[in-house]
Amino acid sequence: MILPVTIGILVAGAVYLMMQRGMVRIVFGFALLSHAANLMLLSAGVTHWRGEPLGGYGTTAEQADPLPQAFVLTAIVITLAVTVFMLALAVIGHNDDTKRMPDTGEKHDR
């Protein structure tokens, strides 16, 4: 049971980074969190079966559950999209501090 430990470490790192002030660190935390979520999804397919799910490749008895893999593939690409979006937010005003906003005349709740 190694994977749960890996996931725990990734989540711990993610939460630590997400509690920081800088948007870039929060984005990094988000990246770690999605790694953890993806590994969690894959382990839902039971990690005992680790054969590649390709027809005519290896024995079907050894092949891994393809459904979580499809989910994770989707998730990875969405992670890319969201990461890029959040990075675009981080770079506005050349300052990624989420608690001190540039003075644009709007009111901010702290």
């Binding site: 749960p4 989540v11 711990a12 969690m40 039971v46 559950d65």
Partner: peptide, 28 residues
């Protein structure tokens, strides 16, 4: 850091308790 460790522990425990405890699914 303390909050992060608690959250990481929770995630690890959940994964440990809820995965890898069944045969390959019928859907698979």
């Amino acid at each position: 850091a303390v909050f992060a460790l608690v959250a990481g522990l929770s995630a690890g425990v959940v994964t440990w308790a809820m995965t890898g405890r069944r045969e390959r699914s019928q859907l698979a």
